[in-house]
Amino acid sequence: MGKVLTITSGKGGVGKTTTTANIGAALAGLGKKVVCIDADIGLRNLDLVLGLENRIVYDLVDVVEGRCRLRQAMIRDKRLPELYLIPAAQTRDKTAVSPSDMVEICDELRREFDWVLIDSPAGIERGFRNAIAPADEVVVVTNPEVSSVRDADRIIGLIEAEEKGPARLIINRLDPRMVRSGDMLSVEDVVELLAIELLGVIPEDESIVINTNRGMPVVLNPKSKAGQAFHNIARRLLGEKVPFMPIEEESGGLRKLLGRWLRGG
């Protein structure tokens, strides 16, 4: 039986879709059979990041509404034969799918795949509830930045309330230089604020932008540091103990920043 892993964040733009695409590609690269579901109905993106946009015929809403079989909506990746995508519908909205639809679809996929990855939409409404309903495990993505940490905290609370926890944390876009100068929250700060287990840290890396625009997950680029970090996350998901990559940090100005946030709201 496969596992259903939901990738969520609360705040938009922190890198959920990039994270989903890369963990999916990394797990597939490690020989696992993976399907990624884009649950962001109306604002689909995962197909672009995976470079599969032009091959979409059917989508998640077509499956739910019975216009096609689940199989027909799956797009197979050209580079990684064990990686599949079920795209979101672009012309509909979140209410086209219900949490119980998602549970049903994932129960079917679980039988055939090792991993079912769900790319959650931002927000705490219906789209989030759809994405979280079938989850066995949940990963929360945040940036080392106060507003996305605050939203991550809210989302972690909701995940606990839905009895889907404990969620694990991915800190995305960490810039060691800015941490050192005291202008960015460090890994320790974020983990202390959110009080959940850390699954991985993705350093700021311009190769992400380049690869994303080309529709190629950065894990496929062996020289990328971010790609390596995603690869390590995939291995941790499989239960391996992978040490965290060294990221320089700690500084004096940090306390000040943290203090400012705590009191500034």
């Binding site: 705490i124 605050r150 939203d151 905290d153 809210r154 972690i156 609370g157 909701l158 606990e160 009080a195």
Partner: peptide, 14 residues
Amino acid sequence: EEAILVRGALRSGM
């Protein structure tokens, strides 16, 4: 003198 006990973290939004 009634009180309630809340166990565990209260997260943002609670």
